[in-house]
């Protein structure tokens, strides 16, 4: 290999440079050998719906949050034996940590700023087109009857800014969706 600009450095420096430039070559393959690619980035699906018969009083919401096991494994290392396969036993052993992590990154607040209480109710598995997701079912109780709730979503943003939280909110007959990103992490839910 020749490099006119290796500035006659030490042999070690030249070897390091070569290795680095080879990485360049690898990265060029991205476009040169197959320019396009539809690659799945990280998504989680947060579905929220209201009680069909609230009957006044406290606002009740229910939620289903589907989070990819691949993503959870990256952050929380669920694959305990490192064999490249996540089993239900491994997921179960990590459930407390997973729920703590997930719900620390999801906040619902009443207009008076008071946080609503999120109570996990059930954990399931769901097959999505791009792999298995952990399904966290939960109930949300807010202290006062509210017509608006603020939803603040931060899951995975710190480790992957391309993560998107895809929110579907069903309020009786109305359905709305929102795509949450680090730039737009909060939305208001109107009842």
């Amino acid at each position: 290999m020749t490099s006119r600009h290796s500035t006659g450095g030490t042999r070690g420096a030249r070897i390091r440079r070569l290795a680095w430039v080879a990485w360049v070559a690898g990265c060029a393959c991205v476009v040169w050998t197959a320019a396009a690619g539809a690659h799945s980035a990280s998504d989680a699906y947060l579905n929220l719906w209201t009680d069909p018969a609230p009957g006044g009083g406290a606002t009740q919401l229910h939620g289903q949050w589907d989070i990819a096991l691949r993503d959870l494994n990256f952050v929380l290392r669920i694959d305990d034996d490192g064999d490249g396969r996540v089993s239900w036993g491994e997921v179960r052993r990590h459930l407390a940590g997973i729920e703590q992590f997930a719900f620390a990154n999801l906040e619902l607040r009443a207009p008076n700023g008071k946080p609503c209480r999120v109570q996990p109710s059930q954990e399931l598995i769901d097959e999505h087109a791009d792999g298995a997701y952990l399904v966290l079912m939960f109930d949300v109780a807010c202290a006062a009857s509210a017509t608006t709730l603020k939803l603040d979503y931060r899951l995975f943003f710190a480790i992957d800014p391309s993560h998107r939280g895809i929110v579907t909110f069903r309020n009786r007959a109305d359905v709305a969706t929102a795509v949450l990103s680090p730039e737009r992490a909060a939305i208001d839910l109107h009842f």
């Binding site: 096991l69 694959d79 490192g82 490249g84 089993s87 997921v91 598995i125 792999g131």
Partner: peptide, 21 residues
């Protein structure tokens, strides 16, 4: 696709992830 489910056994493999090997 099936509805969300609770796996019957701890041994059920759910997802391949990068292996430490």
């Amino acid at each position: 696709f099936r509805a969300p489910y609770r796996p019957a056994s701890d041994a059920e493999i759910l997802q391949e992830v990068p292996s430490l090997a």
